[in-house]
Design a protein around this nucleic acid. Sequence first.
RNA 1: UGGGUUGUCGCCAAGCGGUAAGGCACAGGACUUUGACUCCUGCAUUCGAAGGUUCGAAUCCUUCCAGCCCAGCCA
Length: 556
Amino acid sequence: METTPADNKLSGTGNFIHNYIQDDLKGLLHKVHTRFPPEPNGYLHIGHAKSICLNFGLAALYGGQCNLRFDDTNPATEDKEYVKAIIDDIRWLGFDWADRLYFASSYFDKFYEFAVLLIQKGKAYVCDLTPEQIREYRGTLSSPGKHSPYRDRSVDENLALFEDMKNGVFADGSKTLRAKIDMDSPNINLRDPILYRIAHLTHHTTGDTWCIYPMYDYAHPIEDALEGITHSICTMEFEDHRPLYDWVIDEIGFEQKPRQIEFAKLNLANTIMGKRFLKTLVLENKVDGWDDPRLVTLSGIRRRGYTPESIRNFCEMIGVSKASSVVELSQLEYSIREDLKAKVNVLMAVLDPIKVVLTNYPEDQTEMLVIENSQENETLGTREVPFTRELYIERDDFMEEPMKKFFRLAPGKEVRLKGAYFIKCEEIIKDADGHIQEIHCTYDPETKSGSGFEGRKVKGTIHWVSKAHAVPMTTNLYNALTIPDAEAEAGYTFNPESLVVMKQAVIEPAVRQYASSLRFQFIRNGYFYLDEKVSDVQNDTFVFNRIVSLKSSFKG
RNA sequence: UGGGUUGUCGCCAAGCGGUAAGGCACAGGACUUUGACUCCUGCAUUCGAAGGUUCGAAUCCUUCCAGCCCAGCCA
């Protein structure tokens, strides 16, 4: 009997979060409510996809709900533009939050009220220390901090001061509201953490209404509690913030306490996800914006041609744990090949063409050959492909001096042209500099595809495009975005060869009739995606991005 | 050197005291009009190390070692 991944999870085998949830569900908890809480200060990347799939996936699995909440408590870095982009990306990934779209900024009044409550309880105070002093008073990793001289202000004084903070009486940085916890704590997050800071900035949703803004550590537990979140899932670096998270929940007195659970964020081998690095590339125009297909931003991955299904499957496949890990790119590539292999039409495209003349083929003849659109999926049908005397083949598919295990075209050697005939290389035509101009071959009419010819076998089958019918196109091939560089302080530098543009590429005319399906396999060259941003199908302008190459066991 | 946390195959990752799942990658082989796909086969006597408890340990205990995170008025 087969079990699905969902069965496994429900029966207890799966990641540690499922185990937690199942235990919780055996107790008082009777629902699962999660949230994905991005800060709108940049574009989402594949690391966020892991969190999105986790949060929305968990909610779906246990019949619960997942909120989308923008954690917009710091107007210094946030912008509406990002809100829109993030929403688009999550929708593209295939998740839905119904009417549960929230903003931390819509709770600003609540945060303020609870802060007043904490002051009244003697659990928070207004501190006049400068940023430098606060750092100094905080102590170090191995030595305790010391009390702020403002720590014992009276409740009334704190109340008045905090109100003045809110009313814009004080300059940025001159005062903070701090929790009164423990300056001796070995956990630095508990050494009277800052709850509120003064910042005279315009917020993307509240405008100039506020000039004090809550810190993440204070705001987040409240947001979760207010929304009825049961499991607040975040990444490992927040693990030692959890005591503070719980402190806020307890001191404010929320009855239903959300539980913070941390997991290890995604790292992809040879891939930089850091915001500063990506931002620099975008700003310096080294890449074509945040959706450059070389980037692992969700918008970049989308423009590269990855499907949402493939990303979701990838996230499912890599699992979730607390151990810091680096996932190999081959895992991602597997997920998209797997998704596309039975879905797309397989066309013939020649990325780096070299001309072949079939000297014994009639000059004015055109045959329409019928070729299957997919060997994986018969329901995709067939198409007609024009065959003529002059063709293009891939430059790599010919070797003047072939290596031992080369199955393709070489002087005196015979190969099959996919869906057509056997051809034999008879002569190489070179220019004065010795560069190959064209290859003269003869074809054998008896070997036509589908004729049942059994006379002799050939080791290689290569793809081709009729010269007279070739549709010009551009294909973008990609290599690693960065190259290791011991000299560079980051340890790597931008790879100028991360984008290779094949401007001479040609494709069979069927691309016109199938263009709307966007994704293709170009036989033997990989999976490609029509870049709609720069293509103009009506005017025969085709630009394709290579999503991923095909696997190959050819050791060339 | 303080606190937190992690360590199971090259890479992810199950495992929760009963004798090491699975996926990716890789290597053979079969098939093949994509050197693709598919299909077989192989791939941890061992779970960071060393001790201990137990009939039995990756799972419990002890000590040690290594990695990651924390000293933003960022999230």
